[in-house]
Design a protein around this nucleic acid. Sequence first.
DNA 1: CGTCTTTTTGAATACTGTCAATTTAAGTGG
DNA 2: CCACTTAAATTGACAGTATTCAAAAAGACG
Lengths: 258, 258
Amino acid sequence: MSIAASESPLAFMPSIYARQAAPPVLKTQCSSCHLKDLCLPLGMTGKELQHLDGLVFSRRRVKAGEALYGEGDRFQFIYAVRSGTFKSGLALRDGRDQVTGFHIAGELMGLDGIAQGTHASAATALEDGEVCAIPYAHLSELSSVNINIQQAVSRLMSREIVREHSLMMLLGSMNAEERLAAFLLNLSQRLKARGYSATEFHLRMSRAEIGSYLGMKLETVSRTFSAFQSQRLLDVDKRHIRILDLAGLTRIFDTRLH
Amino acid sequence: MSIAASESPLAFMPSIYARQAAPPVLKTQCSSCHLKDLCLPLGMTGKELQHLDGLVFSRRRVKAGEALYGEGDRFQFIYAVRSGTFKSGLALRDGRDQVTGFHIAGELMGLDGIAQGTHASAATALEDGEVCAIPYAHLSELSSVNINIQQAVSRLMSREIVREHSLMMLLGSMNAEERLAAFLLNLSQRLKARGYSATEFHLRMSRAEIGSYLGMKLETVSRTFSAFQSQRLLDVDKRHIRILDLAGLTRIFDTRLH
DNA sequence: CGTCTTTTTGAATACTGTCAATTTAAGTGG
DNA sequence: CCACTTAAATTGACAGTATTCAAAAAGACG
């Protein structure tokens, strides 16, 4: 479920590297990563970025449905998404689970584990993907050497708190249409920031998972999608979404009159 | 709305100190604080605690209704509650606000400001109280000197993330009775940890504020209190609460069948 | 090609929200 | 100190939205 700190970074690499006689220490470097403006190095400049390259971590391929960590697992790594889509969530006593977040390229998972040394939530891949498994102990050490790295990590944790605040607002005071509109617009913006289309995308999660995240039943999610379609706000074909009227969608959750 | 970094720690102290000819630098020390097992020094041992005493911060008296900081205010301080009850929340576009947390002695406020350098939420006193205003810049410096302080701060931020996860679960999947039961039991535990009665207490927040926090209308909060009373789980007299059947209350939100 | 999962849609129910009236408490000023 | 005003809480009646239960359609997968 979680890989050991000593595990070779090669373990999950394509076979071309494994075939080499003397495999190079394949250090994935943050400074040369195409996600560096979104991910852990966010806001870091030359010097900190250099320090950050001292961070040794492994890349790990994950197949759809596979868990990165489970509730109660020992906390060792913070995971940064390289590719693919992930969900994190908690299991409820009755067997169902509450989705607390969806994560795409450049986003971090596992920060909840710092508090107790064990993960309070679980993270699962919704499609095949790849993550960087960053040893938290090592990141901590680095933080004590360079105060800017420490602050970058703090900012990322704080950002997670802010994100959850807005989700609480959503869950606490919005109706079904507003929730789904907020969800789609948020996803749209995140995809746009990564160079993808803001108006046409494929959902990697089921109606039930969206519903769990938004605090509504899967049938209500489906009905709301249909309602948006008949309002000509969206073009919905199962999980393929095309936003026809971005302004109209924005108006829905902007007009908080409910 | 927020006090300047250079402001004298004496500004909010009783006049007995101000009358002295040469006022001593009145440093409030974490190591001698009666809240040290709950607050910022959580989990710190002798050495870190000594380092933490190097932290200079002011104590600030706050009157009921007064704001500690508002949305968009520049982030300078993390606030630790010494006494009193506070709420934090976001303003909605339509004028109402979403309460994101209630805070009592030993709890921290303002961590959401780290992300952007400005507070994403506001914090207001629900009754007269006192807080420690901890300059974040100074805390950061201290963290780079002692790695254990840095980790303590990280743990506290992570704890906030975990707290919000469970609130999301509440908002996303519980009915009115379960929400109120969860709220009362959580408050009961926190009061107990501070030496107060776990079964009899005075609510400092209105039905509307509880409702905002729990994602329900004030009338529903009131009705649910009445329902608990007729089920002989509680004795409710306006804001005075006496828990008659703690086990029964636990069963309500434990039995997640809804 | 058949099975299983996911999604959509309908009909009825249940829960919470809305609107309104009343009671109680608290604060203000004569 | 009491009348007056304002705010908070309770309760009822009704409306509205989301849930539940059920069935059918459409893909996904082996």
